[in-house]
Design a protein around this nucleic acid. Structure first.
Length: 517
RNA sequence: GGGCUGGUAGCUUAGUCAGGCAGAGCAUCGGACUCUUAAUCCGAGGGUCAAGGGUUCAAAUCCCUUCCAGCCCGCCA
């Protein structure tokens, strides 16, 4: 084999072995160095939804992939608590208009139980991170600023603000106002960071002169006295924390966007090599477009964890390459997602990267549980059904946890076709039953009282079908129609055993009589 | 207006970087399991790779044009 052929052959083999995207990215990153800091971050201005979660899970997948390759790697999550409230979102009372322009950590908690506005949305999210076993170090922007970590960078920034302004104007094709400053002072009187202006600064004393629309004029310390504007804050943060890898939404990725200006500012002003970018696409709500918590069009992570095990939620993100849109529909997508996860080859990389320590691999299809809980009256009955169908229920708590997921899902998101209800009255469609079907149903009504176990019922139905020479299929359908008004349903033996016998006898009797009309 | 990303079977998608017989899973249909349809196993059908053009012995893959979806160029992943 010639060398050229060999190379071709290797390429082909490599393309056949499907490398998971997280490993491919990790390989690229490792070419840049062995030690890495993977950063992620979100502004907690509203419910943190599963769209936001893509950032953190993507970061975590890369973090885990790097770790598996023995890299020296750390994962951080930064909450942008210093960002201002931009408007009164629909979920806020009108009274919050007075807080517009204040940083989130300075605004009171909407429910009154958290330290501030930012924490109100951050706390449930951090709990979800725990459930997803994303062990990121949590940082809050207001703390980083107040601790003085930004101070020297802010001074550098102010000193070189003309250069920065040039980069911004040239790269993002926009004109900055004459009084533009990269620093947004926090007004000591009214807490606004959007109505303030920098009028001067002193590098030695590390102070800034400012005025505010509220009338305040004065000199404040740089440390804790305000924040850098986003497009400057981001590259400053990279250099301060030493970020080498960062996923971000496609909104930042465009040329002239904030990564584009950020990388130039990082190099020129902070002499820092910008982090390796990982651009990810958005999660769309099927038929409704992108998620926005501000528009009430979002599903929060905690809501999702009510109906999905954490490892499946991880898998939901990890199975798709970051640059792909994810169409999401909490009804059908979810139903198939769980089963897909359970069916996965456990040696596949997507599966491994989705794992949590508490994860439980089930051989019980979610669809089956969904059926079972609709039949079962209580927990014991549910476990019986599952055991009878030949499933392993030894890990009772895990089974019940999933049953609880299924119950909530049925309640909130399930499409009608997976739900069934025992019809209170005999369905009209029973009128079209044939004579044989009626005979069979009548016989069933007569014999039902003698049968006690699902097996007996099951076998009994076959016996009846045989004795009347009717196709079992037809009889099954007649029974389902009589009870549910649908042509199929849960496994009959157990299903009938779990229902009230007198009711069944009466119903089948009635269905058999109906022909008279 | 300028730019970024995606468009592959009914659905979710792999393969696009680096051209070499379009591959899965779900769903559907058929069969088997002489106790089952929403349990299990086996099998089948299903594709103008968004459209058109170009380069090439060879294009889903590279180049150009167009269409569709979403996004950025004002701090909403």
């Amino acid at each position: 084999m010639t060398t050229a052929n060999l190379i071709l052959w290797i390429r082909r083999v490599r393309s056949y072995m499907d490398t998971h995207w997280a490993d491919a990215i990790a390989d690229q990153i490792l070419k840049l160095g062995h030690k890495h800091l993977v950063a992620s971050g979100i502004t907690p201005s509203g419910d943190i939804h599963i769209g936001n979660m893509r950032e953190v899970v993507t970061a975590d997948a890369i973090y885990r992939a790097l770790k598996d390759k023995n890299a020296d790697v750390k994962l951080i999550y930064i909450a942008d608590t210093f960002d201002p409230l931009r408007k009164v979102y629909p979920f806020l009372p009108d009274s919050y208009s007075e807080h517009i322009g204040k940083p989130l950590f300075k605004i009171p908690c909407p429910c009154g139980e958290h330290e501030n506005y930012a924490e109100h949305f951050l706390q449930p999210f951090l709990q979800s991170l725990g459930a997803l076993e994303i062990n990121a170090e949590i940082l809050r922007a207001d703390e980083i600023y107040n601790e003085g970590k930004y101070t020297q960078s802010i001074i550098n920034t102010l000193e070189q603000q003309h250069t920065i302004a040039q980069i911004l104007e040239k790269t993002s094709h926009r004109k900055l106002p004459d009084d533009w400053s990269p620093f947004n002072p926090l007004c000591p009187r009214c807490d606004s960071i959007t109505q303030t202006r920098v009028t001067g600064f002193n590098s030695k004393l590390q102070t800034v002169d400012m005025t505010c629309a509220c009338g305040y004029t004065g000199t404040i310390p740089v440390t804790g006295g305000g924040k850098l504007t986003w497009r400057v804050d981001w590259p400053a943060r990279w250099s301060i924390l030493g970020v080498t890898v960062e996923p971000f939404g496609k909104d930042h990725a465009t040329s002239g966007g904030s990564y584009d200006t950020g990388r130039k500012i990082a190099k020129k002003i902070y002499h820092y090599t910008p982090p390796h970018p990982i651009v990810y696409e958005w999660i769309m709500l099927k038929g409704k477009g992108a998620m926005h918590s501000s528009k009430g069009l979002a599903i929060s992570i905690s809501e999702m964890l009510e109906v999905l095990p954490p490892e499946v939620l991880r898998y939901f993100i990890i199975r798709s390459k970051p640059e792909k849109h994810i169409e999401f529909d909490p009804s059908t997508t979810l139903l198939n997602l769980i089963d897909e996860y359970d069916r996965m080859d456990i040696s596949s990389r997507a599966y491994q990267l989705s794992q949590t320590k508490k994860a439980w691999h089930s051989n019980i299809p979610f669809k089956h549980i969904v059926t079972a809980i609709q039949v079962a009256g209580d927990t014991r009955a549910l476990l019986d059904i599952l055991e009878r169908s030949g499933y392993d229920t030894v890990d009772t708590r895990a089974v019940l946890a999933r049953a609880e997921n299924a119950r909530k899902w049925l309640d909130k998101y399930a499409p009608p076709y997976v739900k069934f209800t025992i019809q209170e009255r005999l369905p009209q469609t029973t009128k079209s039953f044939s004579t044989k079907e009626r005979q069979a149903l009548l016989k069933l009504a007569e014999q039902l009282s003698e049968w006690n176990t699902p097996e007996e019922i099951h076998n009994g139905i076959y016996e009846i079908a045989k004795s009347i020479t009717i196709d079992p299929k037809t009889l099954f359908r007649a029974i389902y129609v009589s009870l549910l008004s649908t042509t199929s349903g849960p496994r009959l033996g157990y299903f009938l055993a779990s229902l009230d016998k007198d009711f069944l006898i009466q119903r089948f009797d009635q269905a058999a009589q109906e022909q008279k009309e």
